[in-house]
Write a protein that binds this DNA or RNA. Structure first.
Length: 252
DNA sequence: TCATTAATCGCAC
DNA sequence: GTGCGATTAATGA
């Protein structure tokens, strides 16, 4: 019998993969691809990518699943976490549009050591490792930018080890608030990211109750204000002083 | 509106 | 500082 296997890999049909946002017309200026890849090359990326939309609360990376590629956030916000002992989740970072998710384990045939959940309606662009490896090898500025991203991640990760081991719970909560503020800014006086008290706790490495207690004492000191789930920083400078006094302030 | 889920608070350890 | 449970507020079906 004829054992010839026919690979029906048809590039032209891929083009009609119902992409809502092709790379060449993407407006996301933070995207590493958009920043570094020339317009002729961008079209190639579009052909290879898969778009995924996630509802709020939907998990798109499962801990332990094999790594096949990388996610870029086109729109939305996500949390990246690791499950610790007693099933407690430790939030590693929060990410917004233009950022990369699932980069650990990239380059090696590994499994995800992290999970990722959408915090709001999120659109993701997914690229296979092959596609990205090809692009990185042929595009130095792209590779360099990605390296900067890795370096920054490592720096932040090390800073986090320090904060968790040396800062008090109160300082860690304040640090978390400042981090969210730096990253997501505020909108109408409230942080532009709705997190539950539990999520603040999971990032700061403490418990929900502690976060509530610290929030209420910070409120009494007029440093922050809350309205239901929303939290706003009343005076960023004063809040910064809370931790700069201890010389643990990290402007990351 | 009723049912869930989240936020608080008090209290013991 | 932490953990549990009761109460209250907020949110969603």
């Amino acid at each position: 019998m004829n054992t010839l296997t026919v690979h029906t890999r048809n590039a032209s049909s891929k083009r009609y993969n119902a992409l809502k946002t092709a790379c060449e017309s993407c407006l996301n200026a933070n995207c590493l691809i958009n920043r570094n890849v020339s317009s002729e090359q961008v079209a190639l990326f579009s052909n290879e990518k898969t778009e995924i939309t996630c509802k709020k609360g939907q998990q798109f990376i499962i801990e332990g699943a094999p790594v096949n590629g990388l996610f870029f956030i086109l729109k939305g916000k996500v949390k990246v976490y690791r499950t610790g002992i007693h099933g407690k989740e430790q939030i590693v970072r929060f990410a917004k549009e233009g950022e990369i998710i699932g980069h650990r384990g990239f380059g090696t045939e590994e499994y995800y050591s992290i999970g990722a959940i959408a915090l709001e309606h999120t659109e993701l662009c997914y690229f296979s490792k092959d596609t990205l490896q090809k692009a990185l090898k042929s595009n130095a500025s792209f590779a360099y930018d990605l390296m900067l991203f890795y370096a920054d991640e490592l720096n932040r990760s090390e800073a986090k080890v320090k904060s968790i081991s040396q800062m008090t719970v109160r300082e860690r909560v304040v640090d978390t608030l400042l981090y969210i503020n730096r990253k997501f800014k505020d909108q109408n006086g409230f942080l532009n990211l709705a997190l539950s008290r539990r999520e603040y706790a999971d990032y700061a490495g403490t418990t929900e109750e502690q976060v509530i207690r610290i929030f209420s004492s910070l409120k009494k000191e007029n440093l922050i204000h809350t309205k239901g789930k929303k939290v706003g920083i009343t005076n960023v400078e004063l809040l910064k002083r809370e931790i700069s006094e201890h010389n643990f302030y990290l402007d990351l």
